[in-house]
Simulated assay, not measured.
Amino acid sequence: MRWNWKQFVAVVIIIGVSWMLVHLPVISHYIYTLKSHSIPVISNGNSLLEEIKKKAELYSIPPQDAKIDPIWKTVPGYNGLEVDIEESFNNMEEDGVFDEKKLVFHQISPKKHLEDLPPAPIYRAHPEKPVASFLINVAWGNEYLKDMLSTLKKHDIKATFFLEGKWTKNNPEFAKMIAEAGHEIGNHSYSHPNMKLLGSEATMQELKETNEIIRAVTGVTCIWFAPPSGSYNELTVKKAAELNMRTIMWSVDTIDWQKPAPHVLVDRVMSKVHNGAFILMHPTESTSVSLETLILNIKKKGIRLTTISEALKEKRMFR
């Protein structure tokens, strides 16, 4: 197709006008702005993502396997932390700068767990976990139980009560009260003997009879056993394990059976309380009067009070 002179002139005019429009100051500035803003966004995004990837290792914490320690015996595992790079980037993308407060983590489970370990006593939860547990051994002290339960309820604290079998049989209403309040219940033998001196058959009798009574009265199947006076041997621990119970000891002792003055008891506990602490107590007047002060002071340390079962979980907790 051949153009005539009118068509040729029209094309030249269109090209000329287009060139002029593109080079007008307003249009030129608009095009420059688009270019100058689009490139840095991509660059900053990639730069931020790379920075998060590089720093992720610095903020990550490896998980810790459950183990048998020569001193502390059973030590539960503890979850590690790993940076979620994608979610962390999404949190920081709008501002375009790295901010450690906006890092997102997920927990990493250890390879070896409590159930993978051979039977051995447990004296505490993981020493890095900011928790503590009240271990309340009950074979007497009915007159102080209601006040202690009331204080625990007031502060929304769940404890682990170890009930003697004979006591449970004679005081089913108290045992039910403890269970209905949501506290954890463990086995404290039937007749409070020196377990270390018992043979295989007598040990099993003490443990089994107590489990049966507690189950009949409260509906609870015990998974924890606390030997009276902390007296046990390898046979004790083994027989408890055969009944699917782990043996529980303590790391902080109120020594409340000596009837100390409340301030003495509080000072004794607070000078020794630590992450993962198992705090031994009984329903005594000293403990009943001191309990609220203990709860408040332990909380001030950033330590959460919970049951043994919760304390021994691998889930990482923060102050």
Rank of each mutant, 00 (worst) to 15 (best):
L149N: 12
E314L: 07
N171H: 14
D95K: 15
P262C: 04
K55E: 15
L207N: 07
E86V: 09
V237W: 08
V104M: 01
T33N: 10
I27W: 07
K301M: 07
D84H: 10
G182W: 12
M92K: 01
E93W: 15
G182E: 02
D256V: 00
P62W: 02
K158Y: 08
I157T: 02
W250L: 03
H263K: 14
M249K: 07
N194I: 12
Y144H: 15
R2S: 14
P121T: 15
H126F: 10
T306W: 02
G141H: 11
E209N: 12
E180C: 03
I157L: 03
V237E: 05
I136P: 00
E201I: 11
N187K: 02
I223H: 14
Y144F: 12
P40F: 08
D69P: 08
N244Y: 05
Y232A: 10
T247F: 06
L243D: 06
S191M: 08
A216H: 11
K146D: 15
E180V: 01
E50R: 08
D95C: 03
E93A: 15
S200C: 02
N170R: 09
P262S: 09
E57A: 13
K238V: 00
P130H: 06
T74W: 05
N194L: 11
M245S: 01
G276W: 07
V11W: 11
L305D: 06
K55P: 01
N4L: 06
T287E: 10
L280Q: 04
T160F: 04
A179W: 04
G80R: 11
K315P: 00
S229H: 12
E57V: 13
P172F: 00
I303P: 01
S290N: 06
K196R: 13
V237H: 05
V217P: 05
S47C: 02
L207V: 09
K101H: 08
I42R: 10
Y232P: 05
N170Q: 13
L135Y: 00
L265S: 00
V75C: 02
E285P: 00
K102D: 12
W140Y: 14
S36T: 15
A216I: 02
E184W: 04
Y59M: 05
D99G: 01
E206I: 05
V75L: 13
A139H: 10
G141P: 06
H113E: 11
L243Y: 10
N137A: 10
T307Y: 07
H263V: 13
R304T: 13
I136W: 05
H188V: 07
A175P: 09
K101G: 03
N233A: 06
Q258M: 06
L152R: 07
I27T: 12
L243M: 14
L152H: 07
G141Y: 15
K158H: 14
Y232D: 02
